[in-house]
């Protein structure tokens, strides 16, 4: 009697367990790389440009690699958290990173990062963004010149928002210093990603936000562009007042840098110690990026998807890193 009930109980439990077995088995086995899904580390909070760039390329890269990709967010510490995380993963090619590499030299120069510029190697850096200063549609900030005027009178009168250790941050400081504003006294809020900066600016939580122009497309109806930090016209922001123009009008001299440089990154160690894996990755990304459908998809989202390749991307990265390290002193005390 007793053993009868227990057997039935056991059967019931096996049935319960069996339910979890019934689900489809996602591609497994085969020892050849890649034989399981690949993690893409995005060192920002969800919703920023790196997130979008990963998402847009994912279906095409997935097809080339024959394995699903999954995005893992590791926001915090001005990208140091995500980048450190990447370097601490096993060198098996199952963790790569989609990041704005401009943060790397800046966090290093600020003494926040436990790594070096050379610890990272590029697969491809397709996207170059530019800083844009915006305010919410209904704020009292009339124009960029107005904001600067007010800040000059009282550095605490206008709150500013920016992502920690970003090029946007450098650009903001460059402008403020050019006008002669005491940057030690400003009310500055730092965020863990361009996405949160944009939301905060669009919602009027902060008076002026500085972030990459690309990511503002979704929020276009909620914001007013105060200044664009670029020289040649960008089609989708053709009406934006340019910083250089504002500067000549107000009679100041301003220097600024191009914004975030974005793309696919792996640890240099992986490239050196697992050249085969690196080659596989590069091949897959090259084919995916050149896929006409992928190009079309990226245009819909106004994200540039161009193939430069590892060599050209590395060169671009190293060159930008040098310029940024020269400017990193501006972020002292942040």
């Amino acid at each position: 009697m007793k053993s009868g009930t227990t057997r039935r109980e056991a059967l019931k439990l096996t049935m319960l367990a069996g339910a979890s077995l019934a689900c489809p088995n996602i591609v497994r086995a085969a020892d050849k790389y890649p034989s399981r899904p690949i993690k893409i580390v995005v060192p920002f909070a969800p919703g920023g440009s790196s997130d979008r760039l990963s998402r847009v390329a994912m279906p095409f890269v997935q097809k080339e690699l024959g394995q699903p990709l999954e995005v893992v967010y590791q926001p915090g510490g001005g990208t140091v958290l995500g980048h450190t995380y990447l370097l601490n993963q096993p060198l098996d090619g199952y963790t790569i990173c989609n990041s704005a590499v401009t943060y790397i030299p800046l966090t290093i120069a600020q003494g926040l990062a436990p790594f070096k510029v050379d610890d990272f190697s590029m697969i491809n850096l397709p996207s170059r963004d530019f800083t844009m200063a915006v305010t919410a549609k209904d704020t009292s900030v009339k124009s960029f010149a107005d904001a600067l005027d007010r800040l000059k009178k009282d550095p605490r009168s206008v709150s500013l928002g920016v992502q920690a250790s970003s090029v946007d941050y450098v650009n903001m400081i460059l402008v403020l210093q050019a006008v002669g504003i005491d940057t030690a006294k400003i009310r500055l809020v730092t965020y863990d990603g361009g996405g949160p900066v944009r939301n905060a600016a669009a919602g009027g939580q902060i008076d002026v936000g500085f972030a990459g122009a690309e990511g503002f497309i979704n929020l276009r109806d909620k914001i007013r562009v105060l200044a664009g930090f670029w020289d040649e016209t960008i089609a989708e922001w053709s009406g934006a007042p340019l910083v250089s123009k504002i500067a000549t009008e107000t009679g100041i001299k301003v220097n600024y840098l191009p914004g975030a440089l974005r793309g696919w990154v792996v640890p240099t160690k992986l490239k050196q110690e697992q050249p085969e894996i690196f080659k596989t990755l590069v091949g897959a990304f090259e084919r995916a990026t050149k896929n006409p459908e992928a190009i079309k998809a990226s245009q819909v989202q106004q994200l540039g998807l161009v193939w430069y390749g590892p060599e050209a991307s590395d060169a671009m990265y190293q060159k930008t890193a040098k310029v940024l390290q020269e400017h990193a002193y501006l972020l002292k005390g942040s």
Partner: peptide, 23 residues
Amino acid sequence: IPGGGATAILLAAFMMHNIVPGP
């Protein structure tokens, strides 16, 4: 804007079909 992981995945699904949520 994805509020968290679950909506980030939904957003991904939208984008893979070239649909961009937003205003």
